[in-house]
Structures are given as structure tokens and as C-alpha cells.
Nucleic acid binder design. Structure first.
Length: 953
RNA sequence: AGGACCAUAGCUCAGUUGGUUAGAGCGCCACGUUGACAUCGUGGAGGUCGGCGGUUCAAAUCCGCCUGGUCCUACCA
């Protein structure tokens, strides 16, 4: 083995080997356990969030596989409609200077598939680098033929059950992408805006109670004035009661529009009058519905002003009686240009009463970054109410459990207030909606054109045209858990692996994805998609900032694994910025934070870092310090293994149960470490069951470093290196060294798959685990099971005593400034017979680890020479110090120590002096306090004696 | 406006059902290269657990209020 741990040399090799050996596929034996990967965008690349999520899933899968479960980790990718289409559009614009319209639908879709072929492998290669033990043979894509069949089936059935309908509705329209988007894809951003107060003249010579000939309405969106179809006042508002039913003349347009009473108008805001534009505002849409006002659309799909308005009733029927005339000067103007022009015109007409500056929020499309426009369009919707009810119940009754549980509230809150889901998108890349129209505009929904004709008895000469729209990406990913397993076919995989065991996901897509999966799966499978949802937090940078390209604080998991030079990192972060002026600041921040670039840490260290930071549901601030620390941990494990192999390879390790070479004798240390191993196994298993990966990793780390390496390996040296140790003792220690290490590796494997496999291959044969020509892998070894019978409380107490004595001597060395390597003589006194037995049983260990030349009992404590002292229980450890003591320094130190004991004693005496404490606290607690008091007193007495001795010098 | 979560050492975080001399890693200080590891070893310094009040024999832990931070939902005509 190399002297230092070199992750890059072992990681790629092992992953290939596992894959070739087909170790990721389900075993076909044992209780099923399955995880469906949240499908990443097919053209995307792996970011820190993926890496974190993949680590958790892989740890669960490897752990369950070792437990003998029949595990399936289903892998695949999402076609990601909008994101992918935008990407390819940008690409062809850059490379060929063309738009998708230049190419046409079919040619454009071919381009997208080409791009998928080219770049689709990127993220799968990165998943391999993370060590993800997914079953590649079952890889799926949401645009596969089979998956498309599932999507169609669901659409048609929902339509037949009246759960899908088509209608002209107000939707969130993205004027850049020319498509509807769902509420969830809208991002609300705070802005400073203006608030214009306009005068709307009253028609027919009517005046207000105050004698004015106009009403004042205010708006942040003057351009929508063109589409106003009424003015609302509150029904309770006495100021305007007489005006309800009268009309105003819409300025600049000249349309007569009614004054209606509606609770939407707030008496306390502004004038109490509000303009109503049902075709361009969601609230006004509702007012329009209640008051049967016409919907007057004045925008094109680019959000430019129409030449002639389009008027509809709430059912979407055209209203030919409404005069569609709009002032010609606005036609074709962009909404923001129109706004300026309109305000200027209102001002010129003397109708602008006031302009205020206000803070408001504006809706932005999360993909395009453009301001979203509520626009009246024909769209397909899922009626969610009926689907939501069982989905809520499934969580209420525990069929689905969220971990951590508080996300259930978030889920309920959203599900209780669900709007119908707009599923059509005016895109080309996606699942085309299986609906056909005849020339009269009648719609036929079916699995194919042929089926549509058949179902509705349409003659062959009737021309049918398929709907141009595609489905929301989340519609197809909502079928992920069963669509990947072959539904609508009846497959054995569906029977075996559905419902899946646990969904591992971020809280940000509970609404987008989790909720919709639950609804659709319950509807079509009549069972839940997964039994548990483990919700993890967001991976943020070291300062707690969200990682984003525009902030230039993104870390690439692959760079943490392989390392990256500073200049390359700077280039990566400052290249292709939307706002190039930020490049300088980003470059500086990067140089400051990563002066030497980023070293290679390896996948195992990265995974371990994620796991150690994976506390329940909280966001994690990614800590480079911990990454370094866990890389060091890998190195520690590596070197501990080198030590073990050095001592065990080619030797008799007592591998066979009978012992190959004869008797086996286990030392105290051997029994102790085996005992602690059982406890660690139980701890790690329990933590995994509770999804507490931080506790699991911590327990392993502590055991390996602080017990196995720091103590056990040191305690093994006297046996391994001492010629006087018996062959049976050497055999016992070798056997323990090897077996405990072998168990450690299995315990570590789900968290650190590569290093554990690499070392295990060398260690397993020595531990009696035959590997048959290297065909075995740690992946398929049994998960370590704690054996209660091997827990040895007496050995633990004895080792604690040995450690205490050694630490006492080390303390004295440090306090007295004695060189760590200088051999010392030590006296023990005031001990019990038990102390003497322990010393005799462990003398070589104490001597070796504390670097002592001699250890002697002092029968008469009164005879003690001037010494530095430490207490181990009742027993005193003395290091004679005659000439070496700095009297003043030592007196000062002792005074401080005595002071500390006094404080402790004072605290406990106060407690014990409190009658209600003694009366009400449990007996055990009181006893414990008494015990502590005695210990503190003993320590104090010793310190005082020592002080008096030194003072007398 | 409503709700959720968070506040513990310089930094990143643990701390089950109230009872610990409040922990870990990194960083810091001192000392140390003879045989697994300087990606290391030994020892150490560093915290009135955001503030105030309450419940209790006992509060980092339970309750209330306040402050600061993050996020979600809604509203802003």
C-alpha cells in the first residue's frame, strides 16, 4: 500500500469493476427496498445539491443491500421541457443564427434529440464519479416511448374521468418564452414602482356625493386601462352607494363601463374605487366573474398592444357586441412603452391626479427572467380537488411519512389551497397533448388519431389536427415511480418495487413534484408512490449564501473530488456571466477564499462531509474545513490499515475458528475494542434507521480515530513488538486487529464505498473472509450486526483505568514541561487492591504508552518524595520531581486548581443543602451528587497537601 | 399580514425523554520526526448556550414575550 491515501487511483477503478460485475442490479432475494432517483435534467450537470442527494441515496441503498434487501435504485433523466428547449434555442441562435421557427417543429425537435445524445451522458458520468450504485440497466428517460405511453394513458383517463378540461383562462404567461407557466414557476421579486392615480370621468352628467364629476382609481399598470371593463366600489361604502349601476367613460378609449359593488374594493385604500381589468389581473378576473363583466384582452402574446381588443365572457365565448376599438397610437407598442405613452396622454388630458412611489412585488418567470403577464389563453387544466383529497389523507393517516415531520404542515397548507393545475405549455419539446381537433374545433382526446376516429366514429375524410401544445414537465415526472417500472403494462417490477421505500428530495420541489406524484400515483395505482419522504436542505456556500452562477460562488462537486487550480476556478466562475461587470469582484473573492486552488479530496471524503452535515432538514453551509478533515480521516483509516497489514500479512491471524496455528489468547485491549465495536455497530445502525447520517458518520469517525487508532493500535504494539508476548497472545491481537478493521470497513462502506472496498480486498482474507480470486466485493457482504454477548463492561472499565493512568502521566509531563519522549519513573500510592491487580495485569501497556522506565508501589504515602501528582480514582500517580519544580509557577497552578475544586464543591453543597432538592429529586440523582462531592473533596485534599509540601520548600 | 425554521467556542455544527464539570471538527497556543499516519502525535486556551420573564428541587433543553436571521404563503387595485 502507498504511504498516503490517493483517492483518484482507486475510485475510477472500483466503480468500473462494480458495474462490470453487475453489482448494482437487484439481487432478486430478500425484502424489496427501492429508491427512485429524482430525475435530473438530461442536459444538466451535477451540482452540489445533486451530489448531496446522491450521497444520501447511495448510502441508504448500499446499507440496505448489505442488510440483504432486494434493492433497486432506479435511475433516469427528465426531459425538462422549458429548460432544455431554451438551451437548444440559445445554441442554434449562437451557432446558426436561427430561431426554432426558422427550423420548424420537427427539425427543431431533431436538434434537441441530437443535443441530448451529445450532452446527455455528462450527468450520468458524474453520477458514476459520486459512486452512485444505481441500476444502469434500467435507466429511463421521461421522453422514452414507453414513458410516453404512460403519459398518454394518464391524460386520456383523466380526461375521460372529467379530471382534465380545456378552457380559456387567465394564466401566467411568459412573453419571452411564449408559453403558460404554473404558479410555482413564478418568482415574486420586490421592487420599487410607481402608483398612478387617474381620474375616470362619470358618464351621463352624474356626480359624486361630494360633487365631483369623476372617480379616482389608482394602478401600478396604466397600460391595462385599455382593457378595463368596470370600476368597483365597496358595497358598504356610503360615499359611492348612489353611483352603483351608473357608468364612467373610460379615458382615451371612450368605452362606457359600469360602476359595480364588489367587496374586492377596499374602502380604506386610496379613493376606495378600483378599476377592474378581468383579462389582465387575477383578482379582477374574479371580480369579473362575480359581476359578469366582459373580459377584454388588449395584449398580443408578446405583450404588445393589440390593434383591436378581444372581448369574451367568462366562459370564453366571444362577445361581438363590445366595441373592440383601441386608440391606434398604441397598437404594436410594447407594454412598457405603452405605459409611458398612456401616462403622458392621461397627464395631457388633465386626468393624472397623482404619482406615488411605492414598493411592490412583480412576478417574474423563473426561467426567462421576464415579467409575467396574466393573459387570457386556451389551456388544459387538471381539476385537482378530487385528486387532492386522498393525497392529503395518505399523509394524515401515515401511509406516507415526511422526515422531518414538520414538512407535513407545509404539504397540508399547500394541498388545502390548491388551484387547478395548468398543464399545457406552448413549447415544442415535451409530450404532445393527445388531443385532436376537427375543422369545426371539436376536440377528441384519445391515445392516437386512429383511436380518436374510432372512438367518435369519425369518417376518414374528416381532417384532424393534433393539439400543438405539450404537457408540463411535471405532469410526466409525476408518474415517475410507476412509469419507470413499466406501467401501464403489468410488470413484475411494479409488483416488487412499488411503492418505493423512500423518496429523497429537497423541500423546494415538494409542491412541484412530491405532491403531484402522490396525487397521480394514488389515482392510477391506488397506492402511494413511496412510504417515506426524506427532505434535505439546500447546500449553501461557506457563508450561508445560496450558490448561484450570478453570485460566482458555485462549487462543482467534481472539483472538490479532483481538485482544481486557482486560475481554472476563477475562469470557471467568471466565464459566461450574465453580468460581466461582476467578474472582477468574483475573481477577487475567489482568490481570497481559495488562495491555493482546491486540492483533490476524493469522492469518499466529499460524501462523508455531506453526511456529517446532513442534520434533519436544515440547509447546510458547506464547510471546506470539514472536507479537509474527512480527507484526513480517509488517510487515517488508510494508514491504520497499513499498520494492520504490516503486522498481519503472512502471519497467523487465527483466521479459522479452530485457529490455524493453535491457541488464541485475547488481551484486555482486544476484549475492550471488540466490545466497543459492538456498541458502535448498534449506534451506526440506529442512526441510519433514523436518517441521522450526521450521527452515523460521527460514531464511525469517533470509533476509528479516537478508539481504534489512538488507543487500540497503540495498545497492540506492546504485544506485537514485545518478544516476551506469547504466540497465543500475538495471534489473538493479530486476529482482533484484522477482524475489527474488517468490520469497520463494512460499517464504513455505505458512506465511503471506494476506500472501504480497496482496503477490504486486502484485509478480508486475513479475517477469514475468503474472496475467491477477488470476485467478491464488500458491497455484497453482510452489514455488521452488534452482538450483545461481546459487550464486555469489565474490560471497558479496566481499559478506562489504564487510559486514566497514562493520561495522568501525560498531564504531568505537559504541566512540568517534561519532554514527551523522556523516560520517567512513576510511583503509585493510596490505591485499592483492585488498582494493584489492574497494574499487574497491564504493566507493559502502561509503561509503553506512558513511556515509563519503572512503575512502583509506594506502601507508605507519608514517604512520598516531592512529586508532581495526579489522581486516578482514589489512587495517586506520583512523578518524583525534586529539582525540577518551579516553586512559584507550581504554587500558582495549584491555587488555581484548588479554586476550581472549591467552586465545584460549593455548587454541589448548595444543591445538597437545598431541602426540596433532596426531598423531590430522584434518589439516584441525589446519590450521584453525593458521589461527585466526595470526588471533588478528595481531589482538593490532594491539591492542598501538594501545595503545603511545595510551600514548605 | 400569516406561518415555519434557526440563534450553543473565532468558524461549521452535535446536544434523544429537563439532572454532563456543556461536546466534536476546523482554527489558535505550547511541545514533539526512533519503527501506520506531519493529511500526524501529546497537552492546552477558548462558551454567563441571542435577551427578558415564567414553570420546576433542577432549564442549552419546557412555556411566554422581545431582538436578530433565513425561508414559505398571501397581499400590495
Amino acid at each position: 500500500m502507498d504511504k498516503t491515501y490517493q483517492p483518484e487511483q482507486i475510485e475510477s477503478r472500483w466503480y468500473q469493476r462494480w458495474e462490470t460485475d453487475n453489482r448494482f442490479a437487484p439481487s432478486g432475494e430478500g425484502e424489496p427496498y427501492s429508491i427512485m432517483i429524482p430525475p435530473p435534467n438530461v442536459t444538466g450537470s451535477l451540482h452540489m445539491g445533486h451530489a448531496f442527494q446522491v450521497t444520501i441515496m447511495d448510502t441508504l441503498i448500499r446499507w440496505r443491500r448489505m442488510q440483504g434487501r432486494n434493492t433497486l435504485w432506479q435511475v433516469g433523466a427528465d426531459h425538462a421541457g422549458i429548460a432544455t428547449q431554451m438551451l437548444v434555442e440559445r445554441k442554434i441562435a449562437a451557432e446558426e443564427g436561427k430561431t426554432r421557427f426558422d427550423l420548424g417543429r420537427d427539425a427543431f425537435i431533431d436538434k434537441v434529440w441530437e443535443w441530448k445524445q451529445e450532452s446527455g451522458g455528462h450527468i450520468t458520468r458524474q453520477l458514476r464519479r459520486m459512486g452512485a450504485s444505481v441500476d444502469w440497466s434500467r435507466e429511463r428517460f421521461t421522453m422514452d416511448d414507453g414513458f410516453y405511453q404512460a403519459v398518454q394513458e394518464v391524460f386520456v383517463q383523466l380526461f375521460d374521468d372529467d379530471l382534465i378540461y380545456r378552457g380559456k383562462r387567465l394564466v401566467n404567461w411568459d412573453p419571452t418564452l411564449h408559453t403558460a407557466i404554473s404558479d410555482l414557476e413564478v418568482e415574486n421579486r420586490d421592487q420599487q414602482g410607481q402608483f398612478w392615480h387617474f381620474r375616470y370621468p362619470l358618464a351621463d352628467g352624474v356626480t359624486t356625493d361630494a360633487g365631483l364629476d369623476h372617480l379616482v382609481v389608482a394602478t401600478t399598470r396604466p397600460e391595462t386601462l385599455l382593457g378595463d371593463s368596470g370600476v368597483a366600489v365597496n358595497p358598504e361604502d356610503p360615499r359611492y352607494a348612489s353611483l352603483v349601476g351608473k357608468f364612467v367613460t373610460l379615458p382615451l378609449v371612450g368605452r362606457r363601463i359600469p360602476i359595480v359593488a364588489d367587496e374586492h374594493a377596499d374602502m380604506d385604500k386610496g379613493s376606495g374605487c378600483v378599476k377592474v381589468t378581468p383579462a389582465h389581473d387575477f383578482n379582477d378576473y374574479e371580480v369579473g366573474r362575480r359581476q359578469t363583466l366582459p373580459l377584454i384582452n388588449v395584449f398580443t402574446q408578446d405583450a404588445r398592444i393589440l390593434e383591436r381588443a378581444e372581448a369574451y365572457d367568462i366562459q370564453g365565448r366571444a362577445l361581438p357586441d363590445i366595441d373592440p376599438t383601441l386608440p391606434a397610437k398604441y397598437a404594436g407598442l410594447d407594454r412598457f412603452e405603452a405605459r409611458q405613452q398612456l401616462v403622458a396622454d392621461m397627464d395631457a388630458a388633465g386626468l393624472l391626479e397623482q404619482v406615488e412611489t411605492v414598493n411592490n412585488t412583480l412576478p417574474y418567470g423563473d426561467r426567462s427572467g421576464d415579467v409575467i403577464e396574466p393573459l387570457l389563453t386556451d389551456q388544459w387544466f387538471v381539476a385537482v380537488e378530487k385528486l387532492a383529497r386522498p393525497a392529503i389523507e395518505a399523509v394524515e393517516n401515515g401511509d406516507i411519512q415526511f422526515v422531518p415531520k414538520n414538512y407535513e404542515n407545509m404539504y397540508f397548507a399547500w394541498m388545502r389551497d390548491l388551484q387547478d393545475w395548468c398543464i399545457s405549455r406552448q413549447l415544442w419539446w415535451g409530450h404532445r397533448i393527445p388531443a385532436w381537433y376537427d375543422e369545426a374545433g371539436n376536440v377528441y382526446v384519445a391515445r392516437s388519431e386512429a383511436e380518436a376516429r374510432d372512438k367518435h366514429g369519425l369518417a376518414a375524410d374528416v381532417t384532424l389536427t393534433q393539439d400543438d401544445d405539450v404537457l408540463d414537465t411535471w405532469f410526466s415526472s409525476g408518474l415517475w415511480t410507476f412509469g419507470t417500472l413499466g406501467w401501464p403494462e403489468k410488470t413484475p417490477e411494479l409488483d416488487t418495487f412499488h411503492p418505493s421505500s423512500v423518496l429523497v428530495t429537497g423541500f423546494d420541489i415538494i409542491f412541484f413534484w412530491v405532491a403531484r406524484m402522490i396525487m397521480l400515483t394514488l389515482k392510477f395505482r391506488d397506492e402511494v408512490p413511496f412510504k417515506q419522504v426524506y427532505v434535505h436542505g439546500l447546500v449553501r456556500d461557506g457563508q450561508g449564501q445560496k450558490m448561484s452562477k450570478s453570485k460566482g460562488n458555485v462549487l462543482d462537486p467534481i472539483d472538490l473530488i479532483d481538485g482544481i487550480a486557482l486560475e481554472d476556478l476563477v475562469d470557471k466562475r467568471t466565464g459566461s456571466l450574465m453580468q460581466p461587470q461582476k467578474a472582477k469582484a468574483i475573481a477577487k473573492a475567489t482568490r481570497d477564499e481559495f488562495a491555493g486552488g482546491i486540492e483533490a479530496h476524493g469522492t469518499d471524503a466529499l460524501r462523508f462531509t455531506f453526511l456529517s452535515q446532513a442534520t434533519t432538514g436544515r440547509d447546510i453551509k458547506f464547510d471546506m474545513g470539514r472536507l479537509d478533515g474527512y480527507r484526513n480521516f480517509c488517510n487515517k483509516l488508510w494508514n491504520a490499515s497499513r499498520y494492520v497489514l504490516m503486522n498481519a500479512e503472512g502471519e497467523d491471524c487465527g483466521a479459522s475458528p479452530e485457529g490455524q496455528g493453535g491457541e488464541i489468547e485475547l488481551s484486555l485491549a482486544d476484549r475492550w475494542i471488540v466490545s466497543r465495536l459492538q456498541q458502535t455497530e448498534a449506534q451506526v445502525t440506529r442512526a441510519m434507521e433514523e436518517f441521522r447520517f450526521d450521527h452515523a458518520s460521527q460514531a464511525l469517525y469517533d470509533f476509528v480515530w479516537n478508539e481504534y487508532c489512538d488507543w487500540y493500535l497503540e495498545l497492540s504494539k506492546p504485544v506485537m513488538w514485545d518478544d516476551e508476548a506469547s504466540p497465543a497472545a500475538k495471534r489473538g491481537t493479530r486476529r482482533t486487529l484484522v477482524r475489527v478493521l474488517e468490520a469497520i470497513l463494512r460499517l464504513a462502506h455505505p458512506m465511503m464505498p471506494f476506500i472501504s472496498e480497496e482496503i477490504w480486498q486486502r484485509v478480508a482474507p486475513l479475517a477469514g473472509k475468503a474472496t475467491g480470486e477477488g470476485s467478491e466485493s464488500i458491497m455484497n457482504q453482510p452489514w455488521p450486526l452488534a452482538e450483545e454477548a461481546k459487550v464486555d463492561a469489565a474490560a471497558t472499565r479496566d481499559i478506562e483505568w489504564v487510559k486514566d493512568v497514562i493520561v495522568a502521566v501525560r498531564n504531568i509531563r505537559a504541566e512540568m514541561n517534561l519532554a514527551p519522549g523522556k523516560p520517567l519513573d512513576v510511583l503509585l500510592t493510596k490505591g485499592s487492591p483492585g488498582d494493584r491487580e489492574r497494574l499487574e495485569a497491564n504493566r507493559p501497556f502502561v509503561a509503553k504508552l506512558a513511556k515509563l522506565e519503572r512503575i512502583e508501589w509506594l506502601e507508605d504515602p507519608e514517604q512520598a518524595p516531592l512529586s508532581a501528582t495526579q489522581l486516578v480514582g482514589e489512587m495517586e500517580v506520583l512523578v518524583p520531581m525534586a529539582d525540577l519544580i518551579d516553586k512559584d509557577a507550581e504554587l500558582a497552578r495549584l491555587a488555581k486548581e484548588i479554586d476550581k475544586q472549591d467552586r465545584l464543591i460549593g455548587g454541589i453543597e448548595k444543591k445538597l443543602g437545598n431541602e426540596s432538592f433532596v426531598a423531590k429529586a430522584p434518589e439516584a440523582v441525589v446519590e450521584k451528587e453525593r458521589g461527585k462531592l466526595a470526588d471533588f473533596h478528595a481531589a482538593r485534599t490532594l491539591l492542598v497537601e501538594q501545595r503545603d509540601k511545595i510551600a514548605a520548600l
